[in-house]
């Protein structure tokens, strides 16, 4: 732990690697900690269409690899490992305890992203991998010609349902409101799909299982009517939770757990910055995460020059 780095970036998604690219190009010693593989949530998507310049959809995993390579080309380093805790020393350096040993840095960028939110039903965690899933592009093929349900009403939920409708015999979309939050382009894709059934104003109250998931019980929020739907799989797409566990108690978080930071990416602690999905913001996209990364490098340069 003898060397004090200019910056350590926690998380290797688009926010993290964009920060790494800009910091490395600014001549700062930069390490990215990534607990699994580059790309973050983006890496599980095979079709990225909403990024400037992508005429054909690109694969998220490959884009993650390219973002890593680009940052490393200018001197950023990647460590595959997990950061357990961050603390601030008296001399304002930041100390990180990680699975690969302890590290010291003048600044830290939190780029830990977000993870799918769970329904919160008691049987849910037992059924993960046995009917309950959180990513259609990851697990959808295992439900080929079967009956599945998607829970949720946002962009992700409708995208998952559209994807599954091409593989599965039937897809139910179970949504607690009577209209979808999703953008028009996702709603348009649902039209003319005849194997999707909408179950609106409804909430899943129980998961039925016999070793694996066999069905869900839904209750209509308006009529109170209870209905059992037999399904082989349930894809949960009801939003995301920020991965801010490691900075709880250190940084100011909002009610949902997002790190409070504005467009400058500065948190309440000088020298610690938050970028991408883990930060409070209106739109969580690859392009906004990448933008945060660039902005953070400027804030870091400013911080280090004082």
């Amino acid at each position: 732990m003898d060397k004090i780095l200019d910056t350590i970036i926690v998380g290797g998604g688009p926010g993290g690697y964009s920060a790494a690219l800009y910091c490395a190009r600014a001549g700062l010693s930069t390490i990215v900690f990534e607990k699994l593989s580059p790309g973050g949530q983006m890496a599980t998507t095979s079709q990225i269409e909403n990024y400037p310049g992508f005429v054909e959809a690109e694969d998220g995993f490959e884009l993650g690899e390219k973002m890593k390579e680009a940052a490393e080309k200018y001197g950023a380093e990647t460590i595959l490992g997990e950061v357990f805790s961050i603390s601030v020393n008296d001399d304002k350096t930041k100390e990180l305890k990680t699975s690969e040993g302890d590290y010291l840095a003048k600044t830290v960028i939190i780029a830990t992203g977000a993870s799918p939110r769970e329904l919160g039903l008691p049987e849910e965690s037992n059924l993960i991998g046995r009917g309950v899933a959180y990513c259609a592009t990851c697990d959808g093929m295992l439900y080929k010609n079967k009956v599945v349900a998607v829970a949720g009403g946002g962009n992700s939920a409708l995208e998952e349902a559209t994807f599954l409708s091409k593989l599965c015999k039937k897809v139910y979309i179970i949504h607690r409101r009577n209209e979808f939050r999703a953008e028009k382009i996702y709603l348009d894709k649902l039209k003319n799909v005849d194997n999707i059934e909408l179950v609106m104003d409804s909430k899943i109250t129980k998961l039925l299982s016999d070793k694996k998931l066999t069905g869900v019980v839904v209750v209509n929020n308006i009529t109170g009517e209870e209905r059992t739907i037999e399904v082989d799989g349930l894809f949960v797409a009801i939003g995301r939770n920020p991965n801010s566990e490691i900075v709880k108690g250190l940084l100011d978080l909002d009610k949902q757990g997002y790190i409070i930071a504005d467009e400058t990416t500065k948190t309440n602690i000088p020298g610690i910055f938050a970028v991408g999905d883990v930060r409070t913001k209106d739109l969580r996209q690859i392009v906004t995460a990448a933008s945060d990364g660039a902005t953070a490098s400027k804030a870091i340069e400013e911080y280090l020059s004082h």
Partner: peptide
């Protein structure tokens, strides 16, 4: 499976 995004993510790790 080849179409599995998460499998791609862990494969470099398994190799190492």
């Amino acid at each position: 499976a080849p179409w599995c995004g998460y499998c791609k993510r862990i494969s470099p790790l398994l190799k190492s």
